[in-house]
Nucleic acid binder design. Structure first.
Length: 869
RNA sequence: GGGCAGUUAGCUCAGUGGUAGAGCAUCUCGUUUACACCGAGAGGGUCGGGAGUUCGAAACUCUCACUGCCCACCA
């Protein structure tokens, strides 16, 4: 089958993926004798679609997985999707709203049916898109976080943690999202900078005509104030401690308390205390035993605790009303513009409300201790290592994790309530009923907790729940702990930390040995991609335009640890060109009848160029392996790029053109090409697989081939010789270009001080690639010639009448000056006794050699200049 | 306020103690039968500033500046 002239990825990417998948090449083999290697996919939102962040992380994972598979490991890359509680529920609720429906009126059961239907409808999108990316996931093992089996794992974990008192119910202030009407965890709160105001209110002090002035960014909360705090040592205000103020608008008498929390430097030095609506005030309230007056309903509208005029008002409406009312009373002291940060729900985008409610909590502090130790002791390593600091910082100051959500889509909390409010936490209703029977002594109707768990709760179990836990499955025994977790730093807290906690607690083992944290994808200016900025680049459009391999290779070359990836389509285009180059080289090989011979022994080649390229190939394979082991995909990819384009195409194929009919050249060309396909496969799976087919017999798959490891004797003399030839040709080309010798013109070459052997052996090569019509040896530099010196050899091009000798003189002088400068610098260094006494021997030798060489160059160029006349 | 990164050619980035590199862009030349999504060549950098360690610093230490991000606080 002859290769098409042009590289057209769209012609083969789809069919090849199908072939891989059908062949079972993605499947792990738990019975295999090979060692296990396992990566758990960070499950994307089941109803989501592929964005650049996905494309990056899955490219990295697929590259690692394909490499390991070729190395002979039994690889499990576990696929799956996440139910993504809030995100998915929001999407469906938005759909309902368009139909004029809402979930509460349709009821829980009907709503959940609707969400499941949506999941069935859109759930295949992301997995189809993953296939377009070439992701070699073990699809028959696909899991979903709400699978019945995974739900059993969730219940088991919940029940056990409850019985260990590591999960409990508590009434306290939570981050309440008044739009989504659910509690959220600290991590789901996003601080946003807001240009607001600072209102100064005068509160009348009881029994005097004095006022105490408090400043606030949230005037509406004053309706729930139960104290004013001042610092116990505040010089001007401490005398007021113990007195009361009459809370305006409300008329309530509230105390002035002394508390360290009141910072004399801030605001007016006195601070209003609203224990039910501010986290700090809540603490102050506890210290002084203040009442907590909840003035908001779930929608953050004022409730019946406030004066009638304000009831039912939305919080922002109430703000205006309170300010207006205070102003009317003459109690508004002043208003200042004020920039401050306000907590917002990361999903809803509305300011969150600290709100008193009863929620389920997980004692993260207790669970964090072993998880911290595991990283400190190196059972789990972060790559790059500095991310461990981020992990430590958060884990050492971890707060209780609010795990309940007032949603319907998710794992419903396995807790049932008796008529007296008694809680029965059980694996299922039957078990709960049994417990209730013992307690009440009779059949009793139980009511299940309405709430569901935070999405990240089930995600935290992913590394073992997908492997069948709590059953002791062969998969669990074999693939857990997994080899590496690949993810972005943005979810170290959300996910990595929680998997560590749950994994250690329930399996006694870390969930992964390595956490590889990669960059985030930005636009080419380094800005976050977002819909509102309009700078989103769709990976599928890129794949359509340039092919999947070009996109993948771009991610690989740019995934330097510790840096963001500024994605510029120009880079993708450049890598598409690289793919084209490879395609074209393969086509050339095919046209010249280069067939891969499995019996070809690279160690036995006799021609110098073949000895050279086979050793270079071996060195490439070693380099790429080493870089991949260290997660330096960037360096690995760059090394292949350099080899394929600049060594194999630019030099080897050109070198062998004059002798392309020789059997050894044909076999060697095919061999190198096949090695390139193998080494490049993890990075560019499609083009390499497509090119594999025409070069080997028997319909095998490249992705199932062994990663190349060679036993080859060193051939350093071949490398040296070829490098010398390359230098000679490059020098002649540069001289020709500098002197405007027409590219088509063939010129004679005289050489001086050269070992005849190099020129004899590679005469044809040098003549062809440097476009010479003859090569001859000489003892003297003839007059009126262009000259260059390389590796001690003087190259002379008698070009009288062709070139401008003034120009040539300037060029040579510049060149000579460069070498003289180096010689001088090196000589000065060698004259420094501190240097000669302290530098290591090999560095000294290197400098000696450099000096000799620089002096020789200087001298030979001098000779050439003199000959120029 | 605390922390972590980054600062190297016009742009995007490699380079962790011994003569400053690549890709893209730019310029010159070139349709030599794999490739113009190409080939050959060239220009371009006081490695953010300062100090220190060292025979020797882009690299190590300190310090300053700027950029980005994370965490916390904000009356």
């Amino acid at each position: 089958m002859a290769l098409e002239k042009n590289y057209d990825p769209s012609a083969f990417e789809g069919p090849l993926y199908e072939r891989w998948e059908k062949s079972g090449a993605f499947a792990c083999d738990p019975d295999s004798k090979a060692g296990p290697y396992c990566i758990m996919i960070p499950p994307p939102n089941v109803t989501g679609s592929l964005h650049m962040g996905h494309a990056l992380t899955f490219t990295v994972q697929d590259t690692l997985v394909r490499f390991k598979r070729m190395q002979g490991y039994d690889v499990l890359w576990q696929p799956g999707t996440d139910h993504a509680g809030i995100a998915t529920q929001m999407v469906v609720e938005r759909q309902l709203a368009q139909e004029g429906l809402d979930r509460r009126s349709m009821g829980r059961k009907a709503f959940l049916e609707r969400v499941w239907a949506w999941k069935e409808e859109s759930g295949g999108t992301i997995t189809r898109q993953l296939r377009r990316l070439g992701a070699s996931l073990d699809w028959p093992r696909e899991r979903f976080t709400m699978d019945p089996a995974l739900n059993r794992a969730v219940n088991k974990v919940f029940v056990q943690l409850y019985r260990e008192s590591l999960i409990y119910k508590d009434k306290r202030l939570v981050n309440w999202d008044p739009k989504l009407l659910t509690a959220i965890s600290d991590l789901e709160v996003e601080q946003r900078e807001i240009k607001g105001h600072l209102w100064h209110f005068k509160y009348p002090v009881e029994g005097s005509d004095d006022f105490i002035i408090v400043a606030t960014t949230r005037p509406e909360t004053m309706l729930g104030d139960t104290a004013v705090a001042v610092h116990p040592e505040h010089p001007a205000l401490k005398s007021l401690i113990g007195k009361n103020v009459r809370l305006p608008l409300v008329g309530r008498l509230i105390p002035i308390v002394g508390d360290d929390y009141a910072d004399p430097e801030k605001g007016t030095g006195a601070v209003k205390i609203t224990p039910a609506h501010d986290f700090n005030d809540f603490e102050v309230g506890k210290r002084h035993d203040l009442p907590k007056i909840n003035i908001f309903d779930a929608h953050a509208r004022l409730n019946d605790e406030v004066p009638e005029a304000f009831r039912r008002m939305d919080r922002f409406e109430a703000r205006k009303a309170v300010v207006a009312a205070m102003e009317e009373l003459g109690l508004l002291d002043k208003i200042e513009p004020y920039v401050h940060t306000v907590p917002h729900g990361d999903r809803s985008g509305v300011p969150i409300e600290p709100w008193l409610s009863e929620q389920w909590y997980c004692d993260a502090q207790t669970l964090a201790a072993p998880a911290l130790r595991a990283v400190e002791e190196g059972q789990t390593n972060f790559v790059p290592a500095q991310w461990a600091n981020t992990y430590y910082a958060w884990m050492r100051n971890i707060e209780p994790w609010c795990i309940s959500r007032q949603l319907w889509w998710g794992h419903q909390i396995p807790a049932w309530y008796g008529p007296d409010g008694r809680i029965f936490v059980a694996h299922d209703e039957e078990e709960a009923q049994k417990e209730a029977l013992e307690v009440y002594g009779k059949e009793t109707a139980l009511q299940r907790d309405e709430d569901v768990l935070d999405t990240w709760f089930s995600a935290a179990l992913w590394p073992f729940s997908t492997l069948g836990w709590p059953e002791q499955t062969p998969e669990l025994a074999r693939y857990y702990p997994t080899s590496v977790l690949v993810t972005g730093f943005d979810i170290i807290f959300f996910w990595v930390a929680r998997m560590m906690m749950m994994g250690l607690h329930f399996t006694g083992n870390v969930p992964f040995k390595t956490v590889y944290i990669h960059a985030l994808v930005r636009d080419k200016k380094g800005q976050k991609m977002s819909k509102s900025k309009g700078n989103i680049i769709d990976p599928l459009e890129i794949i359509d335009s340039y092919g999947c391999d070009a996109l993948r290779f771009t991610f690989c070359t740019m995934s330097t640890p510790g840096r963001n990836i500024k994605l510029d389509v120009a880079r993708v285009e450049g890598n598409r060109n690289f793919a084209t180059k490879l395609w074209s080289a393969a086509r050339y090989a095919q046209m010249n009848d280069c067939r891969y011979d499995p019996k070809f022994d690279p160690d036995k080649v006799t021609q110098t160029v073949n000895q050279w390229i086979t050793r270079e190939t071996a060195s490439l394979a070693r380099g790429v392996s080493a870089h991949l082991e260290e997660y330096r995909l960037d360096l690995a990819a760059q090394e292949v790029y350099e080899f394929v384009w600049h060594r194999f195409c630019d030099w080897y194929l050109e070198f062998t053109k004059p002798v392309r009919d020789l059997a050894e050249v044909k076999a060697c060309t095919a061999w190198v090409l096949v090695q390139i396909l193998k080494i490049l496969h993890p990075f560019m799976p499609f083009i390499t697989e497509a090119l594999w087919e025409p070069f080997v017999e028997g319909g095998s798959l490249l992705m199932k081939q062994d990663w190349p490891v060679y036993k080859m004797s060193a051939r350093t003399e071949a490398t040296e010789e070829i490098n010398k030839v390359i230098n000679i040709i490059s020098a002649i080309r540069a001289t020709r270009a500098a002197l405007n010798v027409p590219a088509g013109a063939k010129i004679p070459l005289l050489v001086k001080d050269a070992d005849a052997q190099t020129f004899e052996a590679h005469k044809e090569l040098i003549q062809t690639l440097a476009r010479l019509d003859s090569i001859a040896f000489t003892e003297n530099v003839p007059r009126a010639s262009a000259v260059d010196v390389v590796d001690g050899i003087t190259l002379i091009m008698p070009l009288e009448g062709v070139i401008d000798f003034d120009k040539e003189r300037v060029r040579l002088q510049k060149e000579a000056a460069k070498w003289a400068d180096l010689a001088e610098k090196t000589a000065a260094k060698l004259a420094n006794e501190d240097f000669t006494a302290r530098a290591p021997q090999e560095v000294l030798e290197e400098h000696q050699e450099r000096l000799t060489q620089a002096r020789a160059m200087e001298e030979k160029l001098g000779t050439a200049l003199r000959a120029l006349g």
